[in-house]
């Protein structure tokens, strides 16, 4: 959904502020809804172009976008009301001059009104536009489900239910929370795109959670019960004797929550970690450890 703002304005990433202003001006002249009273599609394109300009005309926002700190689609600024929606509905004329000349183009929409009316539709009513929003969601809120407070550009604040197992890029539709309808048409929807933040420990593959769990040399060799974090809370994990770096343990039902209430698995890969300071007793043991000298962990490394 978030288009590249440079692409939207048709400028290079190296464009100067002046280039960007010119490109926007050129597009806005063509696309401004009030300069295109018969073309409903101009409005959507105009909003896209203004959002891109909003981002790139602000040096700080542009710098942050270029650095990858923010996305193309921040909270979209709603545009309007547009004068064209009042020009016919409003009885009071703005000008007193007489003598209209017939317009030669851009009137196809007038027919749509007539045919919609015939089919029982509301006269000249248009549904309101959809509003696109982007919501950043902490990793665990997406995995476990959560309720997020979202403020809509119109000023409304709503509690948005993030379903368990929500994914990055998922779009939640809030019916009737978009732009108001025109001439009695229904309001549009708010479309909330979720941006799930990464987690320092967990990685997610579908409904499986993977991460690396450090264990001590003694725990790996001798076996142990250790406490391990999972998105569903901490669990006691049995490290079997003779475990090694790369040993994989599966914690069933401790992964990503599913809509039906069950959970995927959490897969833990062990990583043997030596003590931070060499231990004299360990060194002495290793010097005298014959089997250890014969063990070649690089055997077969090149096929």
């Amino acid at each position: 959904m978030a288009k590249d703002p440079y692409e939207t304005l048709g400028v290079a990433r190296t464009a100067t502020a002046e280039d960007i202003r010119k490109a926007y001006r050129k597009l806005a002249k063509k696309l401004h809804p009030d300069l295109n009273p018969g073309d409903r599609s101009a409005e959507a394109r105009f909003k896209e172009v203004s959002a891109a300009y909003d981002l790139l005309s602000d040096p700080e926002k542009r710098r942050r976008f270029d650095a990858g700190e923010i996305d193309a689609e921040g909270q979209e600024r709603p545009r309007g009301p547009f004068f064209r929606d009042h020009a016919t509905a409003d009885a009071g004329p703005f000008r007193t001059r007489r003598g209209p000349r017939a317009a030669r183009s851009g009137i196809e929409d007038l027919f749509e009104d007539l045919f919609a009316e015939r089919e029982g539709g509301e006269r000249f009513a248009f549904p309101g536009g959809d509003l696109s929003l982007r919501l950043t969601v902490p990793f665990l809120d997406a995995v476990n489900g959560a309720t997020a407070r979202v403020s809509l550009p119109g000023g409304d604040v709503i509690d948005l239910k993030i379903p368990p197992g929500a994914t990055d890029g998922q779009v939640l539709r809030l019916r009737g929370k978009g732009l108001p309808g025109i001439n009695g048409g229904p309001p549009g929807d708010a479309l909330v795109e979720l941006a799930v933040m990464p987690h320092p420990l967990y990685r997610r593959e579908g409904d499986t959670i993977r991460y690396e769990l450090p264990v001590s040399l003694a725990e790996a060799v001798l076996g142990a019960k250790v406490e391990a974090p999972t998105p569903a809370g901490r669990v006691m994990l049995t490290v079997p004797p003779g475990s090694n770096t790369g040993s994989v343990l599966r914690l069933r039902g401790r992964g990503v929550a599913r809509p039906d209430g069950t959970r995927g698995d959490c897969i833990v890969t062990l990583k043997v970690v030596l003590p931070p300071k060499p231990d004299a007793a360990l060194e002495q043991f290793l010097r005298g450890w014959e089997a250890g000298r014969r063990h070649d962990p690089r055997a077969g490394l090149e096929g």
Partner: peptide
């Protein structure tokens, strides 16, 4: 602010737009 139209230009644009809306109203 955005389209670089000056004061004289605003008059022209509004006048043409009003005519356009009148014509559209008549046609409607």
């Amino acid at each position: 602010q955005d389209l670089g139209v000056n004061e004289e230009g605003v008059d022209v644009v509004l006048d043409l737009l009003d005519q356009l809306h009148e014509a559209r109203g008549a046609l409607r």
